[in-house]
Design a protein around this nucleic acid. Structure first.
Lengths: 223, 223
DNA sequence: GTCTATAGTTCGATAGAC
DNA sequence: GTCTATCGAACTATAGAC
């Protein structure tokens, strides 16, 4: 049985509005109007406003993370010696997220996800836990294999810093265009993917040079 | 003339509530109750809800960015040869932000800022423009001096990726504790500052190795 | 500066017809 | 599955006393 057409248009409309006005700033009336259905139909299909938000998150996170999972597995399957390069692993992580921005839904979902990832309330943490911890654990294991010299603490911190950078690069704030006075823009997806992989690969490798015993002191012989 | 005590308690209360429930999810009634004043007094002191939000942003951003500005200047003044190390520059950027999390207000403001930074609506962009573009331009100029071999596009992308990582590391989501199964936590401020500096310094340097003509191809000889 | 009271609007959710 | 109608509550902002 296919998902009803009405339910899809409700999810699409809510996704656009939640992105633009935030969860609390979006009313069921606005969603109904945007979707072109009666307000009561949203409750019929999606129960509550809170559940509607989770449905949106579930739809896109499973979509993106399934692709990541497949490409990560492919990395390891096709690698000579069974260990792919760091860049190959990061590509499988970064590309599905940034490429989703090509689709109109991606521009909306990315804003929802970025705000969710930076929320500290219990409900938001539970949602991140439910939909993003499984893929996080897979990448943490993959990074341990690809970077065997990196201590575990570096892997965890590195993964989280990298994730922050990727998630925050998904919404097109156009800030780079303003700061660079029009020279650069965030609509070049391939350029952004390349920069993110390069920056994060180097950043992860950089954590290797920081020994556990060495905390508080930084090498200053770079640059 | 000192700022009124009532106004401060209104700003403090609103800061806590905006962080917890977002802008649209916080009502003037909630703020009045949390501040222990009448609802009408908020309008007297802060005019509208929208203006109240800007007052909160102005108060903390000027506080943090003034410290950054002073320390950045100090870096260059005290450096031998006039050019400080990359890590010294990044320390002046990262430390004031992360250390603000020691104060209770920092835990609230960090959540507000992280969501603002990931918003694409015109009002949010204007606020980022007004309160964060000046300090951004100072650091971009500083990075150009510290990393003379890095092409401009690398400086702009690097600054924005770094900023994303730092801003998203400010709210204590405690995700690292869950993912590391209790081994690590985000309450160790010194450890977090060190990791962020190390990661971002390496990430910025990593962008140097990516030539303008080379886009689409990555070196794979790392790891 | 601080308050009470309230105008005028909008909210999430549900009841019940078809 | 889809609709109209509506309940009870909450909203921002202001008027006006002190």
């Amino acid at each position: 049985m296919a998902v009803t057409k009405a339910k899809d248009s409700i999810l699409d409309a809510a996704e656009r509005l939640f992105a633009q006005f935030d969860y609390a700033g979006t009313s069921m009336r606005m969603i109904a109007e945007e979707a072109g259905v009666a307000q009561a139909l949203i409750h019929y299909h999606c129960k509550t406003k809170d559940n509607l938000f989770e449905l949106i998150l579930e739809r896109r996170s499973t979509m993106i993370n399934r692709i990541r999972q497949e490409r990560l597995k492919q990395c390891f399957d096709e690698a000579e010696g069974g260990i792919p390069t760091l860049e190959q692993v990061l590509d499988s992580f970064v590309r599905p997220a940034i490429e989703s921005g090509r689709y109109s839904w991606g521009t909306y979902f990315s804003q929802i996800l970025a705000k969710l990832a930076n929320s500290v309330d219990d409900r938001s943490r539970d949602l991140v836990h439910k939909y993003y911890d499984p893929i996080a654990r897979e990448y943490i294991e993959a990074l341990k294999k690809v970077l065997p010299e990196l201590p575990d603490s570096g892997v965890y911190w590195g993964y989280l810093i990298m994730t922050s950078a990727v998630v925050s690069s998904m919404p097109r704030t156009r800030r780079i265009k303003r700061l660079s006075e029009g020279i650069l823009d965030d609509d070049s997806i391939e350029q952004m993917i390349e920069r993110l992989i390069q920056f994060n690969a180097s950043g992860l490798l950089g954590l290797s040079t920081l020994s556990e015993q060495n905390n508080g002191r930084l090498r200053t012989d770079v640059g």
